[in-house]
């Protein structure tokens, strides 16, 4: 299992087609992990690109970390990962909260990012979309996994529920994730977003409750195109082949 050290912390990464000339970096969403790309989307992209997936801190198989869930820290992590992997530039894509990290990365390091894809990024003002509520409970977890995670089609068994319960308890009660995320609530009003001139593809589900955010970003980012995909917030799980093909086409042209 490829686990590498980035800024002295263990980060789980997966790479495909290492020899390719150009790299695509993929960022997953909150409370998820790199498997959202691993089975379908990454292999499609790997036909033409070197693909790098990584687990965000405390997610998947990356090391647990108490602090640094704000977008500055998350993009510092990604920048450091690019340095460790010797990536001067890369195409970048992020899903859900990962889409916000991808946007922030493009704002902070525009020379590093060739093209940008934002999939279903939510407006962090919306608490529900941020996945943050004031009181975590087992009932909340059961509701959350039913409605918002990439495991919606699988009924969770006892061992899985326990594993997830432990992860949520850790993230909610021991780390700074709640306060860090709350501090980002005005991120989309950052006037710098108007200045993005990186070619940007916005992918949103036709029935997604985040679609308004996609339309709003499309208005703000001049060099952006908004494409709709059948489905809701879970489009990478619902339409992986379609999403993979759309991403491939955008990065190749």
């Amino acid at each position: 299992m490829p686990v590498i050290k980035v800024n002295n912390r263990e980060v789980h990464i997966q790479e495909l087609n290492k020899g390719a000339a150009e790299t695509v970096l993929l960022i997953h969403g909150m409370f998820s992990n790199l498997s959202v790309y691993y089975f379908n989307i990454a292999p499609i992209l790997a036909k033409h690109f070197h693909v790098v997936m990584y687990d965000l801190k405390s997610h998947g198989m990356s090391e647990r970390t108490l602090h640094g869930y704000d977008l500055n820290s998350m993009t510092d992590d990604l920048h450091a990962l690019m340095q460790v992997l010797n990536l001067e530039t890369a195409h970048l894509a992020g899903y859900s909260f990962g889409g916000l990290i991808a946007l922030k990365m493009t704002l902070r390091f525009p020379d590093k990012i060739k093209k940008l894809i934002v999939i279903e990024a939510p407006d962090p003002k919306d608490e529900k979309a941020r996945g943050i509520i004031d009181d975590y409970s087992r009932e909340f977890l059961e509701h959350y996994v039913e409605n918002f995670t990439d495991t919606t089609k699988v009924k969770m068994g006892k061992r899985q529920m326990e594993r997830n319960h432990r992860m949520y308890e850790y993230l909610f009660y021991q780390t700074s994730i709640k306060t860090d995320m709350a501090a980002e609530k005005d991120f989309l009003n950052d006037p710098q977003i108007l200045l993005i001139n990186t070619d940007t593809l916005l992918l949103y589900g036709m029935d997604s409750n985040c679609l308004e955010t996609g339309k709003w970003l499309n208005e703000k980012i001049k060099s952006s195109e908004l494409l709709l995909v059948p489905g809701n917030h879970n489009i990478p799980i619902q339409e992986p082949a379609l999403i993979g093909d759309m991403m491939n086409m955008f990065f190749m042209n």
Partner: peptide, 14 residues
């Protein structure tokens, strides 16, 4: 894998 062995997606990656 998912129903009987209760493996989640990141475990199937491993």
């Amino acid at each position: 894998f998912t129903k009987d062995l209760e493996m989640d997606s990141i475990e199937i990656v491993s």
